[in-house]
Nucleic acid binder design. Structure first.
Length: 991
RNA sequence: GCCGGAGUGGCGAAAUGGUAUACGCAAUCGACUCAAAAUCGAUCGUCGCAAGACAUGAGAGUUCAAGUCUCUCCUCCGGCACCA
C-alpha cells in the first residue's frame, strides 16, 4: 500500500471530474442498449438561471438525487439523471433589461455559469441530454402542446377581468399571486378586463384531486364463487369493517368458521350509524367471539378499497371494506352475543395457514402484506408525495359540493342562480347578496330610482377591496331595491350588494341566513330580518341562538327545526336526504364549485414562447400549422413591456404581419403577440429528457414507455401549487392524447428543506448573508460540502448553514483517507489475511443494510452517521483487509465521489468505483452471537447480562435474576410476571 | 377559522412500544509541542459524595415497559381563507 499522502481535495476533484467526463462514466443508455437493466429515472426540479449564481443552499436537492442515482447505478440500474434550464419569463427578462443586453444573451451567460458551478460539485448528470426551454428546438413542442390544447377546446380566448400587475405590466394567473400581490414584485394586482388566452385547467380539477388519493394496487377480485351475483336482485352498497386479530404471543390469527357453509373468514361487520370502522371491528369481535382485550394497531386500508359482492337476504351487496388490525392483549372473554353462538366456530390459526387461498376474504393478501410492512399500511398511493404538498393542492383546487338554486327576480325577467355548500338550513334564508363587481348587477338595478347611487357605492366597495389587499373587512353593502322569489318557499327575499360576496366564486350571488357568520353580521348591521332553523342541543345556547344573540353555524351537530320533514334531525345526518328532497321537489340541482380558476396563459411580455396562432382580418383565430412550428421568437432591440396590454412583439410589424393567400385573394394575417408564461416550458420538460433530440415527436412512445414516470422527483415545496399543478394538468392532457402512458408524471416526490443563512434568515444578497459554494469547495472540497449538506439534518427540513459544523464532515473524510494506511497489501494478504472480529463484522453488515435502506428512503443524515459509527469501530483495528476497506468506500462513494474514486484506485481496484457493484449484506451476519440483555425490575433498568442469542428463555431469566444488582431489587419479593423480549430485555414485575 | 407538520442536551439531531440523548459540532481536561494549530485519548442531560431520583412542550390514560399508542391542552412552522 502506498504511503499516506495528505488529502489534496483540489487535485483529486479536478482529476476525476475530467476523467469521468472523458470516459462518459455516467452515460445513460438508450432503451435498446440497456438490455435487462432495470431503469431508474431520478429528476431534479431544473433551475432558473438567475444572474446571481448558486448559493450553498441550491445544490442540496441536486446532491441528494446524485447520491440516489449513484447508488442505483451501482445496483445495476440504467439511470436517467438529467439536468437542464428553465429560462423564459420575467426574471430573465428583467435581468436582461438591467444589464442592457438581450435576454437570450444574458440567459446564455447565466446557463454557462450555472453549469460550471454544478460541474465542480461532481454531479453525475449526462449533459448530452441537457434541455433548455428557450431553445426553439425545445419550445417547438411547448407550442405543439398548446395547439393540441386549442384543438381540444382546452385553450380559449377570454375577455374576463384578470389579475394585472402594473409594475410587471402583464396579466397574471392566480398561481402567480401571493396574498393578492404580484409574487415577483409585491405590487398589489388590479382587476383588468382584457383579451387573454386561458387554459381550461378546471376541466381536470376532479381528476387531479382524485389521483392525489388514488392507490395503485389492484382491486381485490369479486368473490362471486362463494356469493354468486343474483340476477334481478337489487344492488345495495354497504360500508363494512374487517377485523384482523393477531395473537403475538402464539403467533396466531383469529378466524371464524361458519359451520353451515364451511367458510373461514376474519370477523366482518357492517358499520352502523356514526361508528368508525375501528369501533365496528372491535364491537363485532366482542359480539362474535367474546374477545375484549384487543389493542387497535392500525387501519390496513382506506375505505372503499375492497369491493365485493355478497348475496344477502335477496340483495346483491357491494361491500366497501376497511380492514382493521388488532393485537390480542389477553385471553379475557365475555359471553358471545345471542344468535351468534353456535353458528360459528372460533379458531386461532397459525400464520402459515392464514392465507387468502383458505379464506373467503380475497383482500387478505394485501392486508397481510401491510401487516408485515407497516410502510404499506395505507396502501401504495399512486402519488408517493409528502402529505403537506398533497394537502396544499387539495386546498388550492378547493372542491366544494353544494346545491344550485335558481330564482326569478320580482318584476323582472332576470333569473338569478345561487350556490350553497351549507344548504342544510335552507329554510333560514331571508336575504340575498350579490358581489359588487358581478356582471349581472347593472342589468339587475336598471331603472331603480337610486341607480347611480348604487353603482357608485358598488364601485367604492370594489376599490376598497383592492386597496385592502383582500383582507378581512367590516361588512358593507347597499340594498338594490329588488327582491327575488325564493324557490324553496321563503317568500320574497331582498337583494343586497355586499362587499364579502365574490364575483368569481360559485355564481357570485348567495342566499343568506342567520346560520352564517358573515351573513349574520351583515344582517345585524343593516337590520335585515333573520330566521333561525338550526339549534344546538345545549338548551342555554339554543335560547341565545333563538334570540339572535349568537350566530350558530354547526351543520354537523346542529338540530334542524325546518322543514318539518327533517324536524329534530341532526343536519349532518340528513344531508343526503335533503339533497334528494331538493332535487325531487325540483327546488335545486347539484353543483360542484372549485376555488381553482382557469389558467391565464398569456403574458404581455417579450421573453416567452410565442403563442402559435394567427388572427385573420375577419377576426378568426387560426392555429399555426404544425409543420410551421416552431414560431421563433424574433430578436429585437427593444423588448421592454409597453404597459398598454399589448406585448412588445406587436411593434415588430415584419414579424406580426404575415401575407396570406386566401381563395386567391391577398390577406394580411397577424400573429398572436402575447407570449406564454414562465410555467409553460417546465410543465413537460421531464418528458423531453427521455428523448431530447427527437425532431419528429415530443417523445418517442417506445422510449416514453421505457422510462415511464419519474421514479423520484426532488425540489422545493414552494412549487406545490404552481409548477406541480400545471405539470400534472399537462401530463393528464398528454395522457388523454396518447402521448404518455401514465396518469401522473411524478411517482415519488421529495421536498428539499431550505438551507438558511447562519443568521437564520433566508440567504439573500439583500441581507449580505450568502455563502458561495465556490469558496466552500475551494477551502474544504466538494466531497466535504456534499457530505455536510447530507449530514446536516433530515433532508426535507429547513436548517441553518454552519460552516464551523462542516469541519466534522471534513474530519470524517480525512479519517477515511488515513485509514488506507491500515489496509493490507496484496502481498501481506497472501501470507496472512486479516479478519474482522465478530462484532465489527456484524456492524459492517448492519451498516451496509442501513446505508442502503437510508439512501432509498432519503434518510441521508442517518446513513452518514451509520458510516461514522462503522469507521469509529474499524479504526480500532491494527490492520484491515482490502475487501473491508473497499466496502467502506463504496458505501461512501455516492456521497463523496471524488475521494472514494481516488482511494479505490490507490488500493488497487480496477475500473471506476461508481460502476462497481453495490455492496450486499449477509442476513446471517446481521446479528452477533452474544447479546447484551438489559433487565428491568418494575419497569426500571437495574442491570444487564451478556449471553448467547440462542440461550433458552429459562436460562436467561435465571441469569437475569442472579445478576448482582437485580437480585438486590427482587430479594424477598414475590415475582408476579416475567417477560423476555428475545435478544433485548428481561422485565420482571414484583409486588 | 379549516387543514397539514413539528416540539428531545449548549447547538444540528438519533431512537420497528423494549438500555432516551446514537452520530456530529461546541465546551472542559489530558497527551504531543518552546508555543499554537492539527491530531490522538478522556469527560460531557439535571440534582446528588454515593446509592439513587428526576428528565423527550403541559396534563391525564393504556402497558411489565411510552419520545413512540389514546384523549385534552399549549407553542411554533407551513397551506387555504369574508370561497357561501
Amino acid at each position: 500500500m502506498k504511503k499516506n499522502t495528505s488529502y489534496d481535495h483540489i487535485a483529486i476533484e479536478k482529476k476525476w471530474q475530467k476523467e469521468w467526463s472523458k470516459k462518459k462514466t455516467y452515460k445513460t443508455l438508450d432503451p435498446k442498449k440497456a438490455g435487462k437493466k432495470p431503469k431508474y429515472y431520478v429528476l431534479d426540479m431544473f433551475p432558473y438561471p438567475s444572474g446571481e449564481g448558486l448559493h450553498v443552499g441550491h445544490p442540496k436537492g441536486y446532491i441528494a438525487t446524485d447520491v440516489v442515482s449513484r447508488m442505483k447505478r451501482m445496483q445495476g440500474h440504467n439511470v436517467l439523471h438529467p439536468m437542464g434550464f428553465d429560462a423564459f419569463g420575467l426574471p430573465a427578462e428583467q435581468y436582461a433589461i438591467k444589464m442592457k443586453t438581450n435576454p437570450a444573451v444574458a440567459v446564455g451567460k447565466n446557463v454557462a455559469r450555472y453549469k460550471k458551478q454544478l460541474e465542480i460539485l461532481g454531479l453525475d448528470y449526462d449533459w448530452s441530454r441537457e434541455v433548455n426551454t428557450t431553445d426553439p428546438k425545445y419550445y417547438k413542442w411547448t407550442q405543439w402542446i398548446f395547439l393540441k390544447l386549442l384543438e381540444r377546446g382546452l385553450a380559449y380566448e377570454s375577455y374576463e377581468p384578470i389579475n394585472w400587475c402594473p409594475t410587471c405590466k402583464t396579466g397574471l394567473a392566480n398561481e402567480d399571486l401571493e396574498d393578492g400581490k404580484c409574487e415577483r414584485c409585491g405590487t398589489p394586482v388590479e382587476k383588468k378586463p382584457m383579451r387573454q388566452w386561458v387554459l381550461k385547467i378546471t376541466e381536470y380539477a376532479d381528476r387531479m384531486l382524485e389521483d392525489l388519493d388514488a392507490t395503485d394496487y389492484v382491486m381485490p377480485k369479486l368473490i362471486d364463487k362463494v356469493n354468486p351475483h343474483q340476477k334481478g336482485a337489487p344492488i345495495v352498497k354497504r360500508q363494512v369493517a374487517h377485523a384482523i386479530v393477531f395473537d403475538p404471543q402464539h403467533k396466531k390469527y383469529l378466524i371464524i368458521r361458519n359451520k353451515k357453509f364451511n367458510w373461514d373468514t376474519v370477523v366482518i361487520g357492517g358499520i352502523e350509524g356514526n361508528e368508525s370502522p375501528v369501533e365496528t371491528a372491535q364491537r363485532e369481535v366482542r359480539e362474535e367471539t367474546g374477545y375484549v382485550d384487543i389493542e387497535f394497531k392500525r387501519i390496513l386500508g382506506g375505505q372503499t378499497e375492497a369491493q365485493y359482492y355478497t348475496k344477502h337476504k335477496g340483495e346483491n351487496r357491494i361491500a366497501y371494506a376497511t380492514a382493521v388490525y388488532f393485537e390480542l392483549k389477553s385471553d379475557k372473554r365475555v359471553s358471545i352475543a345471542e344468535g351468534e353462538d353456535g353458528q360459528n366456530e372460533i379458531l386461532w390459526i397459525d400464520e402459515k395457514d392464514f392465507v387468502p387461498g383458505k379464506m373467503v376474504n380475497s383482500e387478505l393478501e394485501i392486508w397481510l402484506e401491510r401487516i408485515k410492512d407497516p410502510a404499506k399500511g395505507w396502501g401504495t398511493p399512486l402519488l408517493n408525495w409528502p402529505q403537506s404538498i398533497k394537502e396544499a393542492q387539495r386546498n388550492w383546487i378547493g372542491r366544494s359540493e353544494g346545491m344550485l338554486f335558481t330564482s326569478p327576480v320580482k318584476d323582472s325577467d332576470i333569473k338569478i342562480k345561487t350556490f350553497s355548500a351549507h344548504f342544510e338550513a335552507f329554510k333560514a334564508d331571508t336575504f340575498v347578496v350579490i358581489a359588487p363587481d358581478h356582471p349581472l348587477l347593472k342589468e339587475l338595478i336598471k331603472g331603480a330610482k337610486n341607480e347611480n347611487e348604487i353603482i357608485q357605492f358598488a364601485e367604492q366597495l370594489i376599490a376598497e377591496r383592492s386597496a385592502s389587499g383582500y383582507e378581512y373587512r367590516e361588512p358593507k353593502g347597499i340594498f338594490t331595491g329588488k327582491y327575488t322569489i325564493d324557490p324553496v318557499g321563503n317568500g320574497e327575499l331582498p337583494i343586497w350588494i355586499a362587499n364579502y360576496a365574490l364575483a368569481d366564486y360559485g355564481t357570485g350571488i348567495v342566499k343568506c341566513s342567520a346560520h352564517d357568520e358573515r351573513d349574520f353580521a351583515f344582517a345585524k348591521k343593516y337590520q335585515i330580518p333573520l330566521k333561525v332553523v338550526l339549534l344546538p342541543e345545549d338548551k342555554e345556547l339554543a335560547e341565545k341562538v333563538k334570540k339572535l344573540e349568537v350566530c350558530y353555524v354547526d351543520m354537523k351537530n346542529g338540530i334542524l327545526h325546518e322543514p318539518k320533514e327533517f324536524h329534530g334531525k341532526k343536519a349532518h345526518s340528513v344531508r343526503s336526504e335533503i339533497i334528494s328532497y331538493l332535487i325531487d321537489n325540483n327546488l335545486a340541482e347539484k353543483k360542484t364549485t372549485y376555488r381553482l380558476k382557469d389558467w391565464v396563459f398569456s403574458r404581455q411580455r417579450y421573453w416567452g414562447e410565442p403563442i402559435p396562432v394567427y388572427h385573420t382580418p375577419d377576426g378568426r383565430v387560426v392555429p399555426v400549422p404544425e409543420k410551421e412550428l416552431p414560431v421563433v421568437l424574433p430578436m429585437v432591440k427593444s423588448y421592454e413591456p409597453t404597459g398598454t396590454g399589448e406585448s412588445p412583439l406587436a411593434a415588430i410589424e415584419k414579424w406580426v404581419n404575415v401575407p396570406m393567400k386566401v381563395n386567391g385573394k391577398k390577406e394580411i394575417w397577424k400573429r398572436e403577440t402575447n407570449t406564454m408564461p414562465q410555467w409553460a416550458g417546465s410543465s413537460w420538460y421531464y418528458l423531453r429528457y427521455m428523448d431530447p433530440k427527437n425532431t419528429k415527436k415530443l417523445v418517442d412512445p417506445k422510449i416514453e414507455q421505457y422510462w415511464n414516470q419519474t421514479d423520484l422527483y426532488v425540489g422545493g415545496a414552494e412549487h406545490a401549487t404552481r409548477h406541480l399543478i400545471y405539470a400534472r394538468f399537462w401530463h393528464k392532457f398528454l395522457y388523454d392524447l396518447g402521448v404518455v402512458s401514465t396518469k401522473e408524471p411524478f411517482m415519488k416526490l421529495q421536498s428539499v428543506g431550505l438551507i438558511m443563512a447562519e443568521d437564520g434568515r433566508k440567504m439573500s444578497k439583500r441581507w449580505g448573508n450568502v455563502v458561495n459554494p465556490d469558496d466552500i469547495i475551494a477551502t474544504y472540497g466538494a466531497d466535504t460540502m456534499r457530505v455536510y449538506e447530507m449530514f446536516m439534518g433530515p433532508f426535507n427540513q429547513a436548517i441553518a448553514w454552519n460552516t464551523q459544523s462542516m469541519v466534522g464532515s471534513r474530519r470524517f473524510i480525512e479519517r477515511i483517507w488515513n485509514l488506507q494506511n491500515k489496509v493490507q497489501s496484496t502481498a501481506e494478504a497472501k501470507k496472512h489475511s486479516v479478519v474482522l472480529p465478530e462484532d465489527a463484522e456484524t456492524l459492517l453488515h448492519q451498516t451496509i443494510k442501513k446505508v442502503t435502506e437510508d439512501i432509498e428512503s432519503m434518510g441521508f443524515n442517518t446513513a452518514i452517521s451509520a458510516m461514522m459509527i462503522l469507521l469509529n469501530r474499524i479504526e480500532k483495528e491494527e490492520k484491515i483487509s482490502r475487501e473491508v476497506f473497499a466496502i467502506l468506500i463504496q458505501l461512501l462513494a455516492p456521497f463523496a465521489p471524488h475521494v472514494t474514486e481516488e482511494l479505490w484506485k490507490a488500493s488497487g481496484n480496477k475500473g471506476s468505483i461508481h460502476l462497481a457493484p453495490w455492496p450486499t449484506f449477509d442476513t446471517k451476519k446481521l446479528q452477533s452471537e452474544t447479546v447484551t440483555i438489559s433487565i428491568q425490575v418494575n419497569g426500571k433498568i437495574r442491570g444487564s447480562i451478556t449471553c448467547n442469542r440462542t440461550d433458552s428463555k429459562e436460562a436467561i431469566l435465571q441469569a437475569a435474576k442472579g445478576e448482582a444488582n437485580v437480585s438486590k431489587w427482587i430479594e424477598g419479593k414475590h415475582i408476579t410476571k416475567e417477560i423476555y423480549v428475545p435478544g433485548k430485555l428481561v422485565s420482571i414485575v414484583v409486588d
